[in-house]
């Protein structure tokens, strides 16, 4: 589904920041992959290449077998701060995509209603984003991406700005949604627990140069829930990843 081969990204000309260096990376169809790493290691850069927001400097990157030239509705992006259009209501934000794509109302409206129900916001469809809590706003952000029925969902630290309790309920929600839709997901996070809980595979990234140093399959059984955060298998994965990340930070 997503294929990186020897991809580099340099910002700002020849002497610029080398955010990604010779990255090989792939995500299979229907797979949930978490990209884990400290702030500034190039996670957003990698995701933005897939989204079509940035152009790569070297190498080749394919999405669904094709080179990416621009953003498009086959790749639904969920932003860290939701980035809803503040002058539109929840409903208008969710149907923005189908509307500008020129789809028929009777085609997208039932789907939009259903997705708002899934994320638990059907009662708030007339509210403006500013009237919602951070967690609710992010539910709208997820809904407006899902309503386009994208081939992949690209999520850039979508729960990073939320308080711990809200984050847990959003993780639970995402697990349930994914269990239902089985969309391909590329999920960027700096939270180890979050990565293990959600993903089929965790890719650990390091900075300078931005690289993926380790890929760890997480074969916790599905369906999962936030209760899995405390079981022994989970702790085992966590220990493994922590060792990996510590090793990456002070190489001997």
């Amino acid at each position: 589904m997503i294929n990186f081969s020897k991809v580099s990204k340099v910002y700002g000309g020849a002497q610029g920041v080398r955010a990604l260096d010779q990255v090989d990376f792939s995500v299979a169809e229907g797979e949930f992959v978490a990209l884990l790493g400290p702030s500034g290691c190039g996670k957003s850069t990698l995701l933005n290449l897939v989204a079509g927001f940035e152009k790569l400097t070297e190498g080749e990157m394919l999405f669904d077998g094709q080179a990416v030239s621009r953003p498009g509705p086959d790749r639904g992006v969920v932003f860290q701060e939701a980035s809803l259009l503040p002058w539109l209501t929840v409903w208008e934000n969710v149907v923005f995509g189908p509307k500008v794509q020129g789809l028929m109302r009777n085609e997208y409206e039932p789907r939009a209603h259903e997705i708002l129900k899934i994320v638990g916001l059907e009662a708030f469809h007339k509210a403006l984003p500013v009237q919602l809590s951070g967690g609710m706003r992010q539910r709208v952000g997820i809904a407006r991406a899902l309503v386009m029925q994208p081939k992949a969902l690209l999520m850039d630290e979508p729960f990073g700005a939320l308080d711990a309790q809200t984050r847990l309920s959003m993780q639970q929600l995402l697990l349930e949604v994914w269990q239902r839709l089985k969309t391909t997901v590329l999920f960027v996070t700096h939270d180890i627990d979050e990565a293990i809980l959600l993903a089929d595979r965790v890719c650990v990234m390091t900075a300078r140069p931005g690289r993926i140093t380790k890929e760890i399959p997480i074969d916790l059984r599905r369906p999962r829930s936030i209760d899995d955060l405390t079981n022994s298998e989970f702790t085992h994965f966590k220990a493994q990843i922590m060792t990996e990340m510590r090793g990456a930070h002070d190489p001997h």
């Binding site: 953003p71 509705p73 639904g76 992006v77 980035s83 923005f96 995509g97 500008v100 794509q101």
Partner: peptide
């Protein structure tokens, strides 16, 4: 806000829609 424009592009908006909406 750059992310509003990115969000609109991601949802399939063309240049015209981005400008007017």
């Amino acid at each position: 806000d750059k992310n509003w424009i990115r969000a609109a592009l991601m949802m399939g908006a063309g240049q015209r829609d981005v400008l007017t909406r």
